[in-house]
Nucleic acid binder design. Structure first.
Lengths: 145, 145
DNA sequence: GCTTGACTTCGAGTCGGCTCGAACTCCTAA
DNA sequence: TTAGGAGTTCGAGCCGACTCGAAGTCAAGC
């Protein structure tokens, strides 16, 4: 039972991950992949399914704002073996906290926005229901629309 | 009863809003303020409390990723008067949706991160409890740390 | 009269993360 | 044998939102 691991071209990886081929080359150059990418006889990149899996995780880290240097560091630690488990944990924990903070920040902004949207919705409803508006022409909340 | 509206220096506004004086000047130049900022005899900016209030809203819009051109547009509409209420509403609604999407995206990234953090936590707990690890030296999830 | 400190203008620089384009090499299929 | 298409390298360019620095003005206090 000889299982040959299939390899993927950069185009295939691009399709599977949603990253452009440009970005994939860039990521490789930035050392964001766990191990060096193989090449075929013509020098073309041969990716593995594991690369794809990792790139998917990578995408999550990126979309949650982890900087490339941190991702590189994480990958580096991974390569160094099991003795870096604590360090990897710490790195992820720190990021986890940042993302939570970011969600909280967005939520707080969203509260303000929701409130304003609501205000305008009411105002428009009132404006169409009874065209007469008794508080004068510009009655925005706190005078800022 | 003559109520003189007090004016604030750029430094005071900076303190109250958390924006640097550099940024405040930049925002003025980018037309993000509702009305033109007054100046004293020496050419120094005189802000109003309303400016501060608006800047606080502005900060929320920014922290939730609204681009400066959109904010400028919003302010512009506001200046144009009540007939732009629908347009302002639309603008805010669109942003609201973007922010919600962004929160969802972060949340989905957070799920992955939480899962990984959890994985490492367990692994470390196991590693310290019984130093022997029966599945070999590198048993990361799906082989990617 | 001199320093201090907050202000002014202007234009240039920074940063991260792509994004693009030029010029080239291969392989395949008609 | 020639055209197409997917790949390669390299370096430059872009974007938004600041951020900084130089050089100058002004008013108050010592």
């Amino acid at each position: 039972m000889t299982t040959t691991t299939p390899r993927l071209s950069i185009g295939e990886v691009s399709e599977r991950t949603g990253l452009t081929t440009h970005t994939l080359r860039f990521y490789e150059q930035e050392q964001l992949l766990v191990d060096p990418v193989e090449r075929d006889s013509a020098g073309r990149r041969l990716f593995t399914e594991q690369d794809v899996e990792w790139l998917r995780v990578c995408t999550k880290l990126r979309s949650s704002g982890m900087p490339l240097p941190d991702i590189r560091r994480y990958v580096e630690l991974f390569r160094e073996g099991p003795q870096t488990v604590q360090a990897r944990f710490d790195l992820l924990r720190a990021h986890q906290e940042r993302v939570r903070a970011q969600v909280a920040e967005l939520q707080s902004a969203l509260d303000v926005i929701d409130h304003k949207v609501d205000f305008y919705a009411r105002r428009m409803a009132a404006g169409t229901a009874e065209t007469l508006w008794r508080n004068g022409p510009e009655c925005d909340e706190s005078a800022n629309g």
